[in-house]
Deep mutational scan, measured.
Amino acid sequence: TFEVERIVRKKIVHGNTSYLVKWKNYSSKDNTWETEDDIRTKYGDLVDDFEK
């Protein structure tokens, strides 16, 4: 199971928000862009903290 360590960046393309996710126990080269809906479902607190 993958676990988010932190959110690195945010991008908005054509009105759709995605977050660059750093995965726990993986290197930064393994970071992936994930949709806001996918990340918010399980890691809403991390998204809220990133947006502060």
Rank of each mutant, 00 (worst) to 15 (best):
R9H: 07
I39H: 01
W23E: 00
K29S: 11
R40M: 09
K24P: 02
N25Y: 10
V4F: 05
F2Y: 13
K29G: 08
K42G: 06
V13T: 10
V4R: 00
G15K: 05
T32S: 10
V21F: 01
Y26S: 13
K11Q: 08
K42W: 11
W23L: 02
E3C: 10
E3Y: 07
V13D: 08
N25I: 06
F50V: 02
S18W: 15
N16I: 15
E36T: 03
T41A: 13
W33K: 00
R6L: 10
V13Y: 09
K24N: 04
Y19E: 00
K10R: 08
G15T: 03
D30E: 13
Y43L: 04
V8K: 03
N16A: 12
K22D: 01
V4E: 02
E36R: 05
N25E: 09
H14C: 15
E51V: 04
G44Y: 09
K11W: 05
T32H: 02
I12F: 08
T32L: 02
T41I: 13
K11F: 05
D45V: 11
I12L: 08
G15S: 04
Y19T: 01
V47L: 14
E5K: 02
K11I: 09
E51C: 05
R40N: 05
S27M: 09
K52T: 09
D49T: 10
T41S: 13
E36L: 08
D38K: 12
T32P: 01
F2Q: 13
D49S: 11
S27D: 14
V8H: 02
L20D: 00
S18N: 06
T35V: 08
I12Y: 07
R9T: 10
T41V: 14
D48S: 09
V13C: 14
Y19F: 07
S18R: 11
D49F: 11
V4K: 00
L20E: 05
L20T: 02
T35M: 10
Y43T: 03
K24L: 09
R9K: 12
K22N: 02
K22W: 04
D30K: 13
V4T: 01
D45T: 11
Y26G: 11
R6T: 08
T41W: 11
K22P: 00
V4M: 08
V4G: 03
F2H: 14
D30P: 07
I39L: 15
K11E: 06
G44V: 06
I39D: 01
S27Q: 11
R6S: 12
Y43R: 05
F50E: 01
E51P: 03
L46Q: 04
W23D: 00
Y19D: 00
D38R: 11
V21L: 03
S28G: 09
V8G: 00
G44W: 12
E3D: 08
K11P: 00
R9I: 06
S27I: 08
G15A: 04
I7N: 00
K42Q: 11
R9D: 14
D37W: 12
G44R: 12
D38M: 13
I12Q: 07
V13A: 08
T17I: 14
L20P: 00
R40S: 04
Y19A: 00
T41R: 13
L46E: 04
K29P: 05
G44N: 13
K29T: 11
K11G: 05
S18E: 10
K42V: 09
K24Q: 07
K42I: 09
F2W: 14
V21Q: 00
N16T: 14
K24W: 06
V4L: 10
R6H: 08
N16V: 15
R9M: 14
N31C: 15
F50Q: 03
D30R: 13
H14I: 05
T32K: 03
V13K: 07
K22I: 05
D38N: 12
Y26Q: 14
S18A: 08
E5S: 03
T32A: 02
N31T: 09
S18P: 02
Y43V: 04
V4W: 02
L20H: 02
N16C: 14
F50R: 02
D45G: 11
K10N: 07
V47T: 03
F50N: 02
F2L: 14
V13H: 10
K24I: 05
T1N: 13
R6F: 14
D37K: 13
K42L: 14
Y26P: 09
S18L: 15
D48I: 09
N25A: 07
S27V: 07
T41K: 14
Y19N: 00
T1D: 12
E51M: 05
T41M: 13
N31Y: 15
K24Y: 07
L46M: 12
V47R: 04
D38L: 12
D30S: 14
K24E: 03
K11R: 14
D48Q: 08
E36V: 06
E36G: 08
K22L: 04
H14L: 11
D30H: 15
Y26H: 15
G44F: 10
K29V: 10
V21K: 01
T35L: 12
I12K: 07
D38T: 12
D45L: 11
H14P: 02
E51Q: 04
K22E: 06
K22V: 07
D48L: 10
T17G: 03
F2G: 13
R40H: 03
K42Y: 12
R40P: 02
K29R: 10
T35K: 12
T1E: 12
L20N: 02
G15Y: 04
F50P: 02
S28W: 15
D48M: 10
W33S: 02
F2D: 11
E5T: 02
R40D: 03
F2C: 15
F2V: 10
S27F: 06
W33Y: 02
L20W: 09
T1W: 13
